[in-house]
Design a protein around this nucleic acid. Structure first.
Lengths: 227, 227
DNA sequence: TTCAAATAAAGAAAAATATCTTTAAATGAA
DNA sequence: TTCATTTAAAGATATTTTTCTTTATTTGAA
């Protein structure tokens, strides 16, 4: 048997830019991992020391073998008849997801959603720390939300030269989304969390995570109307 | 050949409650549809009359046959060599998704995310109209965001008796999420858009759409760190 | 020490989804 | 009118993801 830790199936998928690349972790798994983390954190506070995959599966209503496989991606080992050590599995999840590192980000567009995210990250750990926010609205510039200063948009270039930020959060109006995204890329941003409805046209190497509210509204409405 | 319009494959999948049910539209398709709608709306404003699936695919960077199949779910018919009539396809998408109906909703938890959604829906069509918001915070009660009044939480029961609302938007702190969700169900809510990190335990018939910010943050962080 | 029960891990099968291929229809130009 | 071209639609294949099955390990009780 080869080294277990790296004995993971490598899936060939297409990214948003359409080019094939090797990925070690399936996206559905990645989306489930923070759910485990939150639930396990709650258990830890309750004083639980060990937790089995079937128990997690029962509580989170998903297949126990899926839990085992998802957790295996993080490298954590469970013991038969006992389950996982709660400290080990939380530590493993956090370090795997990068939630224990400081992943610094710029936010552009301190409107509704932008302001919400700024205030939100104070209490809810997203694994991302917003360093500064930018806007063109004179009424917003100079204000502070969730401990984050809102700066003039044209200061973005200057500040990105000094700091080395790799994440950009895009919460601008749709009309300027493409333009701002290109600016972010020129500032050295490597990944964009896109909350607009615009399909961004950016270099292939840029990681784009689209999180459009309307997509989830659509699923909800359809499921409701077909029931 | 049988009637084309209803000649759609019916997928057997498990819903969040774990029980099998028949669904006519795959979730990935549903999530893509609002993206088409937004793009086509933009084209309409530019005066475009017809649009082909290959063109949509090229712009939105996805497979042209996937565009054809996704649009076919809405019932719209395209013409070879011409493509789809832009008015027809937009109308078809909106009516299929229910975006042209008034899908009324209650929102509970007028905090960061809640306030953002209230303000957001003023400008961005999500197909959902928030009728009233509820909170327990005395400082928030009586205020108005995005034209929506914030009411005392205990007024929820009274108001739900008069109005017949079927959608509940859950933007409370995690600690009270389960409790509030149960209240919403008791008020006759049929579908819950859950923005908390809590895995809700509710009757099977209740439609739950989980939209946890941390899930998308996780995907972004992992893709960034593995690149 | 032995054995039964519980469980993670690995592998196989099934289901769902995406991509590729073929077909047939419609258009506009010759 | 004819024909090449474009395209939607339908079907087939491939990929990805989930679920089911088997195996082997560990634990605690007899």
């Amino acid at each position: 048997m080869v080294n277990n830790t790296f004995n993971l199936k490598v899936a060939k998928v297409k990214n948003s830019a359409g080019n094939r690349e090797n990925r070690s972790v399936p996206e559905p798994t990645l989306r489930r991992l923070p759910g485990y983390l939150f639930y396990l954190d709650k258990l830890k506070k309750e004083g639980v020391l060990n937790i089995s995959a079937p128990t997690i599966g029962k509580e989170l209503k998903c297949d126990p073998t899926q839990v085992v496989k998802d957790l295996a991606y993080t490298g954590v080992k469970g013991r038969p008849k006992v389950g996982y050590n709660i400290y080990e599995v939380i530590q493993s999840l956090e370090s795997f997801l990068g939630f224990n590192r400081t992943n610094e980000a710029f936010l552009v567009g301190a409107g509704n959603l932008g302001a919400a995210l700024m205030a939100y990250q104070e209490h809810q750990s997203l694994g991302i720390k917003i360093i500064a926010a930018f806007d063109v609205d004179k009424n917003k510039i100079g204000k502070e939300i969730g401990g984050i200063h809102i700066l003039e948009y044209n200061k973005l270039f200057h500040l990105s030269n000094r700091l080395n930020i790799s994440i950009g959060i895009l919460t601008t109006p749709n009309a300027v989304a493409q333009e701002v995204a290109e600016d972010l890329v020129n500032c050295g941003i490597k990944a964009i969390w896109n909350f607009t409805s615009v399909n961004l046209n950016l270099p292939e190497k840029i990681i784009v995570q689209n999180t459009s509210m309307s997509a989830y509204a659509a699923v909800l409405l359809k499921r409701l109307n077909e029931s």
